[in-house]
């Protein structure tokens, strides 16, 4: 797994309090990992902080799964 994926996973596990093996490529933050809309806002902020990038609101809305996040960040960073 890429370095980006590892770092994203660590943030997701920490913020949502979920087991690491639940954070799969297709895991939806809201449907599978118990996040609510505020949790997803906070997650995106944590990604921005960790990777020193800015994720615009419309892009943030398209990040629904762990895989989406890794893909977006890999391309942006």
């Amino acid at each position: 797994m890429s370095d980006v994926a590892d770092r994203v996973k660590k943030i997701v596990v920490e913020h949502l309090g979920v087991e690491e093996d639940k954070v799969t490529e297709s895991a939806s933050f809201i449907d599978d990992l118990g996040a609510d809309s505020l949790d997803t806002v906070e997650l995106v902020m944590a990604f921005e902080e960790e990777f020193g990038i800015e994720i615009p609101d419309d892009a943030a809305e398209s990040i629904q799964t762990f895989g989406d996040a890794v893909k977006f960040i890999s391309e942006a960073a």
């Binding site: 505020l38 806002v41 906070e42 902020m45 921005e48 902080e49």
Partner: peptide
């Protein structure tokens, strides 16, 4: 201000 948590107010 962009770093303010959505959980700050609630």
């Amino acid at each position: 201000p962009r770093r303010v948590s959505p959980f700050f107010i609630p």
